[in-house]
């Protein structure tokens, strides 16, 4: 068997060249594109893993924020309830105070109105009684009334202390006048009769001056320098009114 060494050498060179050619233009490009795709896939996987981690972290953050919101909501609700309760208590207290004040004011107003009504009623009753008395007295003869009141005032003069009675009687010496007030003007006869009766009661001569005043309704009054002796229905009504008010 013969070996052609030239052929062996050429075939060796040929195969080595083919190794280089295929390695350079066939195997390397394919391996590079596979490796590049693998890198891309790894990068995608890494990106996906990173994004998944970020999503997990974001979800954890969201859960935390949600928990905080829930806790804050509970706190706000509790605070709002407490505030509403406090406000309710304040409003109730304020309303109670206002009601008590209104009630007190109403009571005072009622008392005041009642007192005013009573006073008005008393005044009205007084006026009514005066009017009734005046009308009734209109049926009694004037001289009878004058005689009656004159006798009563004389009795009252007699019951005065001596100093008061003397004070009136001393009006002559002091130059002052003693005024006799009647409800209706007196005639001269009646004036003389009244003068004589009063001078007898005081036991002295008196400088009398007569004056009529319908306000005393009925009766006779003696106004001295320091003493006033009343025997009139106006004085009686005034006394009765004061007693009723008391």
């Amino acid at each position: 068997m013969h070996i052609d060494w030239w052929t062996l050498a050429l075939q060796t060179v040929n195969v080595l060249i083919l190794v280089w050619i295929l390695g350079r233009f066939f195997f390397r490009p394919i391996m590079e594109v596979v490796a590049k795709r693998q890198q891309e896939a790894n990068k995608l996987l890494e990106d996906a893993a990173r994004e998944r981690d970020e999503a997990v972290n974001m979800r954890a953050e969201a859960d935390k924020v949600r928990a905080n919101i829930a806790a804050r909501r509970e706190d706000l609700i509790a605070a709002a309830r407490a505030e509403v309760q406090s406000e309710k208590q304040n409003m109730l207290a304020q309303t109670s105070q206002e009601l008590a004040k209104l009630r007190a004011d109403a009571d005072a107003a009622i008392v005041r109105d009642r007192a005013a009504a009573e006073a008005q009623l008393i005044a009205h009753a007084g006026d009514l009684s005066v009017e009734i008395a005046r009308r009734l007295l209109g049926r009694v003869p004037h001289r009878v009334l004058l005689r009656t009141f004159l006798d009563e005032i004389c009795a009252e003069v007699q019951s005065l202390p001596a100093e008061a009675r003397d004070g009136v009687a001393a009006a002559v010496t002091t130059g002052r006048q003693v005024e006799v007030v009647t409800a209706a003007p007196l005639s001269d006869q009646e004036m003389q009769n009244v003068s004589a009766t009063l001078e007898k009661a005081f036991g002295a001569e008196l400088p009398l001056v007569f004056r009529s005043d319908p306000a005393i309704i009925a009766g006779i009054e003696v106004h001295g320098p320091n003493t006033i002796i009343r025997n009139s229905w106006a004085a009686d009504l005034e006394r009765i009114r004061r007693e009723l008010k008391a």
């Binding site: 068997m1 070996i3 060494w5 052929t7 062996l8 075939q11 060796t12 195969v15 080595l16």
Partner: peptide, 12 residues
């Protein structure tokens, strides 16, 4: 099918 080629491969 020739020994030279196979020998070349063997040498490589």
């Amino acid at each position: 099918a020739h020994i030279e080629t196979d020998a070349a491969l063997g040498v490589i």
